[in-house]
């Protein structure tokens, strides 16, 4: 029946594995991240909100949604209002192209990997626009830094994404996952260097320590988010949490075999959760380990070390493939 298929598509887009499921997972990962980060610093982290503090991100979200929403008179109203909504849609759209329950994503077409890279660039540009439209000196500086930082991490990240794409002979995330599933081989085995580079680049994309330069609170108040309050801040924070899911989901799909695993009884969604949780823990571990870089160190470092290393990885992969004659 046509309408049943349509209803199923609608439900899977809205509820599982669509918007509501992704938002719940994003809030859950924020809690995991905060708790693990606190544990590494010998603290407890949030523990009194719900069982073991698991409702803390929910409380933060509701509180921000119910707070007064201040729009300073000097801001550029249209852009200022549009940025939080747009920045929330970007990671959600990109997440539809990542396989979560099986080897097929909700939406997939040849070249969706390029489209995801494009969406992630747009997030950095929206951060810049948000800072610029605030017309606050701290926001402007933070927005500038966000755009500058994007120039640093974007190229090595995109080049490293090409490793799994070359292996699978396709630019579609779903096809890369299928290739890994059918060959029983995770792309990280042939791309160890690329995996490391992508993790570092995602730390910068997520604006986490050591690359939290755009929102360095000891220098520039809260960076490009300084002027956002209430509802707008709630949307921005939700978007950043979804970006964490996007980052770990994309790395899982490209390098760790996606939602498939060696034991076939365990469903795909469980594999997805296990692998992304491990990645979230890696991200928070690195966050607790380092101190912040300066913006010039970050950009020049990534052009001096990350870009040559990512190209070296591709060359090595090609040589290896020629030698193995895949």
């Amino acid at each position: 029946m046509a309408w049943e298929v349509g209803l199923l598509a609608l439900l899977s887009t809205l509820i599982y594995p669509g918007i509501i499921f992704l938002v719940v997972i994003a809030l859950f990962y924020q809690w995991v991240d905060r708790r693990f980060y606190a544990k590494l610093q010998n603290r407890y982290g949030p523990i009194y909100t719900g069982p073991r503090g698991i409702l803390q991100p929910v409380a933060d979200l509701i509180k921000l949604l119910a707070k007064e929403d201040i729009e300073p008179s000097a801001v550029d109203k249209q852009i200022f209002r549009a940025v939080p909504v747009l920045i929330l849609t970007m990671p959600l759209t990109a997440l539809f192209m990542i396989p979560i329950t099986g080897t097929w994503a909700l939406a997939s077409f040849e070249g969706d990997l390029i489209f995801i890279i494009f969406l992630m660039t747009l997030i950095a540009i929206l951060a810049f626009l948000g800072g610029w439209s605030s017309t606050n000196i701290f926001s402007t500086l933070g927005g500038m830094r966000a755009a500058l930082q994007a120039l640093g991490y974007e190229v090595p990240m995109a080049v490293s994404f090409m490793g799994p794409a070359i292996l699978a002979g396709s630019l579609s995330v779903s096809k890369i996952v299928q290739w890994q599933a059918s060959h029983g081989l995770w792309a990280i085995l042939l791309n160890p260097l690329g995996f490391g580079i992508v993790i570092v680049a995602f730390l910068a994309e997520l604006e986490r320590i050591p690359f939290d330069i755009p929102e360095a609170e000891t220098e520039i108040v809260a960076g490009w988010q300084t002027e956002f309050s209430g509802r707008k801040l709630a949307l921005i924070r939700l978007a950043l949490d979804l970006e964490l899911v996007l980052a770990s989901g994309l790395v899982t799909a490209l390098f760790l075999g996606g939602p498939t695993g060696p034991i076939p009884i365990i469903p795909g969604i469980a594999w997805f959760m296990i692998k992304t949780l491990v990645l979230v823990l890696i991200f928070s571990n690195l966050r607790a380990l380092f101190a912040r870089f300066r913006i010039d160190q970050m950009v020049s470092g990534s052009w001096k070390y990350l870009v040559p290393l990512s190209i070296l990885q591709i060359v090595m992969l090609e040589l290896l493939l020629g030698w193995l004659s895949f």
């Binding site: 603290r43 407890y44 982290g45 949030p46 803390q56 300084t226 801040l233």
Partner: peptide
């Protein structure tokens, strides 16, 4: 560790 109560130190008064 007052983050146990959900308190975070924010840099911006707007937050």
């Amino acid at each position: 560790d007052i983050e146990r109560f959900g308190m975070i130190l924010r840099g911006s008064p707007r937050h």
